[in-house]
């Protein structure tokens, strides 16, 4: 028999052409729109870089020195971490409970799932506007409900203590459905035979949850937690639409600070220094993820 991998010259040529096409496409794309800009941002964070004045002068660590002495940076970082901690916890815990519930019912399952999932696909700008009106102290739905219980004068987005939690609630409402769907897919992998066997052995629901369901879902849980952390560190649109960082600086998060420095004051170098800090924080989180994944599972 002749060698099976015999190829004609034109086939060899087309294989080569395909590999070269993809290599060139990927290398040029990533250098222009991804890796290149990252290096640009890193270098620019050491410069007085202003696109309006058309300046790009190196000023050593001045951007970072100013940044670390800026109270607003620390306040924004604190707000961001607070936001990430609450929303990730809310999304994961509620998402898990809802998925467990949905997994156990037979009737109306897809209708129920839709109720939880629909906010995920709604455009964030429209959703943020709707919630801004829901929270409105004069015309809002929440005001209407609270006043039925005799509680008035709750200012929600205009109250420095309530503004960020209000946005957190909206964000959990919008995003919990995504976690529900991912967890539902993960729950399908829980081996039914083991659940049944454990029932025969007299295990109760709680034991099944902690000893069978949660260990099986662990990779899914970690996936949702990590991707949520990375995306919530970059929360912007709802802040921009609902409060613009206010009242005062109570909802001022890192992305909003970057936006203001870069696109209102055109301090590109200074803003880049903030993005570099954010990048480092997220890399640390991702690194910890890999440690946990390697240590605990598979």
């Amino acid at each position: 028999m002749i060698e099976i991998k015999i190829k004609t010259n034109s086939q060899m040529a087309s294989q080569k052409a395909l590999i070269i096409l993809v290599s060139v496409l990927m290398i040029s794309f990533y250098s222009v729109f991804s890796i290149g800009p990252m290096i640009y941002a890193f270098v620019g964070s050491f410069a007085d870089w202003n696109p309006i004045k058309d300046t790009f002068q190196f000023i050593q660590f001045n951007n970072y020195i100013h940044l670390f002495n800026n109270q607003l940076f620390w306040k924004s970082l604190k707000n961001t971490i607070y936001f990430v901690a609450v929303v990730v916890t809310g999304r994961v815990v509620l998402g898990f409970l809802i998925a467990l519930g949905l997994n156990s019912i037979r009737k109306y399952k897809s209708m129920m799932r839709s109720l939880y999932f629909l906010p995920v696909i709604m455009p964030i700008v429209a959703v943020a506007l709707v919630w801004k009106w829901l929270y409105d102290p004069n015309i809002g739905f929440f005001q209407m409900v609270l006043s039925a219980f005799g509680i008035t004068n709750v200012k929600f987005l205009f109250d420095p203590d309530l503004a960020l939690p209000s946005i957190m609630l909206m964000t959990i409402w919008k995003d919990v459905g995504y976690a529900v769907i991912i967890f539902l897919a993960g729950l399908m992998d829980v081996p039914q035979s083991i659940i049944e066997a454990s029932e025969i052995d007299g295990a109760n629901k709680r034991q099944q949850l902690w000893n069978i369901i949660i260990p099986t879902l662990k990779p899914t849980l970690i996936f949702v937690i990590i991707t949520s952390i990375i995306s919530y560190f970059q929360t912007f649109t709802q802040i921009f639409i609902m409060t613009k960082g206010g009242p005062g600086t109570s909802t001022h998060v890192l992305l909003y600070m970057i936006y203001r420095e870069a696109f209102q004051y055109y301090r590109f170098g200074y803003a880049s220094a903030i993005t570099v800090c954010l990048f480092i924080v997220i890399m640390i989180v991702t690194f910890i993820q890999f440690k946990i994944m390697k240590g605990g599972e598979v």
């Binding site: 290599s23 990927m26 290398i27 990533y30 222009v32 729109f33 991804s34 890796i35 290149g36 800009p37 990252m38 640009y40 941002a41 620019g44 696109p51 990375i230 560190f233 970059q234 992305l255 970057i258 870069a262 696109f263 590109f268 803003a271 880049s272 993005t275 570099v276 954010l278 990048f279 997220i282 890399m283 991702t286």
Partner: peptide
């Protein structure tokens, strides 16, 4: 190339926004 794909999936998009904006201009 595959390592670049994995790496860029983890990087926050915002770090590229400012330089890409400058380039687009």
């Amino acid at each position: 190339l595959f390592k670049i794909v994995l790496f860029t999936m983890m990087v926050p998009y915002i770090i590229t926004v400012i330089p890409v904006y400058q380039m687009i201009t």
